[in-house]
Amino acid sequence: MSTVDERAPGAREMGPYAAAFVAGVTANNRLPLDYSVASLRIVDCLVDGLRKGGADRERLRGTLLGLGAYVGEVLVRRAGAVWVDFDADQSAYFGQRVGVRMPDGRVWNPLGKVRNRFELGGPGESLQIFYLTLHGRARRAVA
């Protein structure tokens, strides 16, 4: 279990944080980060590339946080989730200050899911599959 990063944005800041991250990483290249479910496959590839590049997690902390914010924002925009600040027990369990709550009340940790993809790799940690198998989504995609 990792310690909670108190420097990470709170729930209210995560949407704007994700938007700023996307604007920054797409400014000089054509990454199709359009908040679609299909774009999560791009995030899988980006994280895999970072992992293969050999940089340590602390050095990539900001990038992984941005990717996690993006994944969470896809859940907000496409699955009906809302950003929430975790309570003390949830923060201790997830190792994060924030996550998302789905329409059915379940909470998920997209920031930790990105961290797991980076640390563990492999298809079992796919962010696109995470979305597609996610419990508690809205029945229809939210615009």
Rank of each mutant, 00 (worst) to 15 (best):
S2V: 08
T3F: 09
V4P: 01
E6I: 04
R7I: 07
A11S: 14
G15V: 06
A18T: 04
A19H: 06
A20K: 09
A23Q: 11
G24Q: 12
T26V: 11
A27R: 15
A27Y: 07
L31V: 02
V37C: 00
D44W: 04
D48V: 07
L50M: 14
K52T: 13
E58T: 14
R59C: 05
L60D: 09
L60K: 04
R61T: 04
R61V: 03
T63W: 03
G66C: 07
L67M: 11
G68N: 00
V74P: 01
V76D: 01
R77I: 02
R77A: 03
R78I: 03
A79F: 00
W83T: 11
D85P: 01
D85S: 08
F86E: 00
Q90S: 14
Q90E: 15
S91I: 06
Y93W: 05
F94T: 03
V98T: 10
R101W: 07
M102H: 04
M102R: 01
G105R: 04
R106N: 14
R106Y: 11
V107I: 10
N109S: 08
V114S: 02
R115F: 00
N116V: 12
R117E: 02
R117W: 02
R117H: 06
E119D: 14
L120I: 13
G121D: 03
E125W: 06
S126E: 04
L127Q: 03
Q128G: 13
L132I: 10
L134Y: 09
R137L: 14
R137G: 12
A138W: 05
R140K: 13
A141S: 15
V142M: 08
V142H: 07
